[in-house]
């Protein structure tokens, strides 16, 4: 049986909790979905989406969610693709109790719809050996500042701590990947050739006689393997920061996001998001539910975006970036 009611404006129920942008009262299924209460196929049943920024869920909150799910939900919870924790089978008559009990531990319900979503992230540099950036710290900053900000369509962000890109920054509307540019200090180098072997990108060759590295920066993915492998600290961190990708998305017609800036700082990140959303909302007006990637693929839009961002990106801007690339997953 196909159920078309999920985003329907026709079907409404009276709820006793406010949802994002709306007070408690008679709300449509679509309004409720926007607020993180997603209509199920089953009559009166909704899935309540709990906000879990960057996939980090304090145990205190996890225990409370378990308690709430046992009381008002089914015998399981669902881990969403975007790291939220969802409680299915909640009767809408119980929304007020669910919200009140979750708020005892400051657990919020996440939103859907045309707005900045909860960022996803890897574990980051705090304890992951590959991590180059504080993805979890940035996730918190960005979620506190931007969660729920209205846009033309959904706006997904993520943070990856290294080029392995577990948080799939190339598939987000706007996302940041940790990066370190390696610099070599000749006087500390013993010519041991370890860096050339450690590099997975063929960006470092060893000199046939001296063993000293020959660096090809164009091939470098900024992963810092050479810095970590070097026994004598001859490779050190140069520029550090984030690679900025924009305009990616998944769905039926995915786009691969474009790199628009390199080595932006942590402090740049919220400014970049703010300015990008500003550009997106301005240029998406009257175009309906349009993703930023679709907008950037229109004639001249990439240049318009780069012009809008030039005071933020400064010398970190990529010259003439390509528009997001459409990927066909149907063939």
């Amino acid at each position: 049986m196909l159920d078309h009611n999920i985003e329907d404006e026709k079907y409404k129920v009276e709820v006793t909790v406010p949802v994002i942008g709306k007070s408690a009262g008679v709300l449509s299924f679509n309004d409720l979905k926007t607020g993180g209460y997603i209509k199920q196929r089953q009559k009166d049943k909704f899935t309540v989406r709990c906000m879990v920024p960057g996939g980090r869920l304090p145990i205190k909150k996890l225990k409370k969610i378990v308690e709430v799910a046992e009381k008002y939900g089914a015998d399981y919870v669902h881990l969403s693709i975007r790291q939220s924790l969802e409680i299915p089978y909640v009767d809408y008559h119980n929304f007020d109790k669910v919200v009140a009990e979750l708020s005892e531990v400051d657990q919020k319900v996440a939103s859907c719809g045309p707005r900045v979503r909860v960022p996803t992230a890897c574990s980051g540099c705090e304890y992951n050996p590959n991590g180059l950036s504080d993805t979890q710290g940035l996730t918190k900053v960005v979620n506190d500042k931007f969660f729920g900000a209205e846009c033309n369509h959904k706006f997904k962000t993520s943070f990856s701590g290294c080029p392995i890109d577990c948080a799939r920054t190339s598939e987000m509307d706007l996302a940041f990947q940790g990066a370190v540019f390696p610099e070599w200090e000749e006087e500390k180098c013993t010519g041991c050739r370890i860096c050339a072997s450690a590099c997975q990108e063929d960006a470092i060759h060893d000199h046939p006689e001296t063993g000293e590295p020959i660096f090809f920066p164009d091939k470098c993915l900024y992963c810092a393997d050479c810095i970590r492998a070097c026994p004598t600290e001859a490779w050190v961190s140069g520029k550090t920061g984030h690679i900025v990708r924009i305009g990616g998305k998944h769905g039926r017609h995915p786009f691969k996001g474009s790199v628009v800036a390199k080595f932006v700082s942590d402090e740049d990140v919220p400014v970049i998001i703010e300015k990008t959303v500003e550009w997106y909302n301005k240029h998406g007006v009257g175009k309906g539910r349009i993703r930023i990637g679709t907008l950037l693929r229109e004639e001249g839009m990439m240049q318009s975006y780069m012009e809008h961002m030039k005071d933020v990106f400064k010398d970190k801007a990529v010259k003439d970036p390509k528009p997001p690339l459409e990927i066909n997953i149907q063939e």
Binding site: P129, I194, S197, A198, Q200, D225, R228, A229, C230, P231
Partner: peptide, 10 residues
């Protein structure tokens, strides 16, 4: 070679 030297240093 990517993992053992860095773990030793750490």
């Amino acid at each position: 070679l990517r993992n053992v030297p860095r773990s030793l240093k750490e």
